[in-house]
Every structure is written in C-alpha cells, then in structure tokens.
Design a protein around this nucleic acid. Sequence first.
DNA 1: ATCATAATTTAGACGTGTCTAAATTATATT
DNA 2: AATATAATTTAGACACGTCTAAATTATGAT
Lengths: 219, 219
Amino acid sequence: MNQTIENYLKGIYTLSKQSPSGVATTALAEKMETKASSVTDMLKKLDEKGLVRHAPYKGAVLTQKGKKIAIEVVRKHRLWEVFLVEKLRFGWDEVHTIAEQLEHIDSAELIVRLDEFLGFPRYDPHGDPIPDVNGHISDNRKAFSLSEAAVGTKVIIAGVKESSDNFLRYLESVALTLNTTMKIADRFAFDNSVRLKVKNREIIVSSTVAENLLVKKGK
Amino acid sequence: MNQTIENYLKGIYTLSKQSPSGVATTALAEKMETKASSVTDMLKKLDEKGLVRHAPYKGAVLTQKGKKIAIEVVRKHRLWEVFLVEKLRFGWDEVHTIAEQLEHIDSAELIVRLDEFLGFPRYDPHGDPIPDVNGHISDNRKAFSLSEAAVGTKVIIAGVKESSDNFLRYLESVALTLNTTMKIADRFAFDNSVRLKVKNREIIVSSTVAENLLVKKGK
DNA sequence: ATCATAATTTAGACGTGTCTAAATTATATT
DNA sequence: AATATAATTTAGACACGTCTAAATTATGAT
Ligand SMILES: [Mn+2]
Ligand SMILES: [Mn+2]
Ligand SMILES: [Mn+2]
Ligand SMILES: [Mn+2]
C-alpha cells in the first residue's frame, strides 16, 4: 500500500462524512490538491483494486477494505500527532504536515509500541478521537459547537471542527486551547459573536470561531 | 529531495568508504537491489542535479552537496534507531527497516527535537556514531576488530562491522550486546576462533564473528 | 422538453524510476 | 598486441501518477 493510495483513501474517508452516498470528483480533487481528471484516473485504479466503488458520474464510496485502510491511516496520523505534541513539545498548529508523512510508515508493530509508549491516548491534540487497533472509533466527548452553547452555561473546549493552522494559531494566541474551561457570558444577536469568561479574563470571539470550536458541558 | 535520491546518495556514501576513488555501478546496483542499467540512469540524473560526479565507466563520487545530504540521512536514520530501541523497546535487530523509512521524513525541526528528546546520543544501537547537526562525525570509540584483540586482554563491545539482522540476532542470542565487557581467553590457531570469558560464562565465537565484532579496550 | 452550464470522463502526453536486450568500453589472459 | 570476458552504458519499453484539452454526461432554469 503506497502513500498516494493511502492519501486518496483518507481523503475519500474524510469527505464521505459530508456525502455518504458518494464523494464527488471535484471535491476530492480540491482536497487532494490535484485535478479532477487525475482523480478520475485514480478512482479507476482504486476500484480495480477493490478499495473503492466508483460509479462514473456518481461519485466514489469506500469498500470495507478501503475504509479499513483509511481508518488505519487516521489512527497512525493521530497517534503521531500525540507523540509530536506530548513528547517532542510541538504546538498543535505545527504537527499536521509532519504527521501527514509519518502516517505512511509501514510497520504494525511500530504503531502498537507507539500507542503503548503514549499511554493509549483516546484523543489527538485537536480533540479528534483516535480509532482503536480494530478501527473502532468511540467518541465520548458529547461535543457540540460553541455557537449552540446556551448563554450562562460553563463549557470545556473539546476540539475543533476546522483544524487549519491559521485557526489553531489564532486559538493558541488567545489561549483558547484544549480542555480550557469557560463560561458563555453573552451572545450578541447582531453578529452572533460570543463573549467568554475564561478564568480572570474576558474575550469576544466571532461567530465563525464559535461555529468551529467544539465544546462539552463543563462544571 | 525524495526518497529514491536519498537512498542512492546514502548508498554511494556508504560504499565510497571502501572505494573512495569512485563507486562501481555494479556494487551500487547490488546495494540498491536494482539493475546496473537503472543505476546508470540514476547516476546521470544525480550528476545533472550536482549531487554526484559520474564519469562513465569510471564510477560515481559524491559532490559536497550530495555528501551533505547523505550524511543528514545517516544522522536521521541513526537517531530514529535510538528512538526505536531506547523509547519503544525494539531489539537492535528489528529497527533497520523501520528507520529506513523514518529517515526520509522531511522536517529539520523534527530532528532537532528528536535529538533533544533522546538526550543528544552520540552512537546508535549498533555502535555507529551519529553525525552532528553540521554533518561532522566524531568517533571516539577507538574500536578495533575482535579478531585483532590480543589474548589475555579485556575488551568492551563497541559495535558491529556487519549489521545484518542475522548477525545481530546471533549476538543477541548469545548475549553479546553493546557495552558487554569480556576477556580474550584464547585464540585457536587452526581456525582463528576465539574463546571469550564473559562474566561467569565462556563462549567460543568463529573467526567470522570475531572479524565483524568491534571492541574497545576494557578495564 | 430544451438548452446552457457545470461536473466528469476520455484522449493523449509527460516525468520518474524501473526493466530487458543489445551495444560499447575496460580488463585481464595469452 | 590480439582477444576473451566482465563491466557498463544505451535503446526501447513499461507502470505510476500527473497534466491539458476535448468530449461526454448530468443538472437546473426557463
Ligand atoms: Mn499523508
Ligand atoms: Mn489532528
Ligand atoms: Mn531509506
Ligand atoms: Mn544502525
């Protein structure tokens, strides 16, 4: 299994959450930073290999075999991200491109040992759940978007919807990092921005930020 | 810089210790597990890129630029080997193929932090010196072959000349691992096999083993 | 239902790294 | 010095992953 194929499978897997009936060629092309015609070529190959079912003009769906590989890649990606942040002290905005490479290292035993070395983490540095060795994903966070949190409640940052480096760096700079507890002080009707109380300080975040920040109920 | 090129440069670098005037196409082909014609093709490309000087029929020599890259790859390979053995508890015979992949991860900052995380190791699990960040290799082991050690002297295992998995597994199975202290009890003239005293036990190793085991003076 | 537009696929090409078979050059033997 | 043999390069091909331009199919607005 090579890198290109693994990256395509992961891309299809990610996009299929939004469009379970079939991932569009154009959407996948954008995700993979390539051209639609290249995607079509690759989908044909993946179909021949039994990793994807590709109905021309109808989009692509992972087979069980393809999904299994995709989830394994996600597991490896997230475990390496934990390693980079917890052991090598990288920031959560710095680990994506490195993990993007490390996820393709081909050694099952390596991942078994890495998992153990890290203490069997359940979530990655962005709050995303780490699939177990059988590919099962259990997300116990009960997370919802900050834009849906009721005014007056306390919440804890549980993850991000969007994990672009820009967004992560913004959050880092205003000290809104994973597991931060905060109180929803206000939501302003005119632009849906949200005022938060974090420890001793207050901060107002835009509706876009609120939309993309995942929280869970706090005490 | 891609994997194939890095592997070729490393291969040329390793072989050039035996033949500094130029690495032969055939030798490189065997090392790279490919055909001589493929090697010729690649040497032409590397020459064009300024990484190698290739005089047709005369062999290949690394340029400064090529040597720099080769040594960086060696540095990364050996640091990852230390990680695998020291942190993930792999055996020294299990790490080569994994490090062969990890050495190509492209991130200078990653290696800086890995080096620090490992406590700036000077030698890898096979006793080979780890080049520093500037590509300088300092080998303070003063190691020599066990086959040259005088009878009656005490020596410490400092490394291996040949690091095939088979040889490493043999050494592991007879508990002749890095930093083991032993006394040269005898060398038998008829086949140059060597009797060693290690702690409370005795073991006889063949001349081939003695030839490929590096030792330094012990107390 | 027709037509314009957008999405997708196909056709033909290219760079990379590899191969086999044939040609060329170096080397060793006589 | 001529010749046999080994080493090396060249010629031509192929799989992979990509591209541009052209053709095809789907969609939705009228
Ligand atoms: Mn990747
Ligand atoms: Mn992540
Ligand atoms: Mn390698
Ligand atoms: Mn080593």
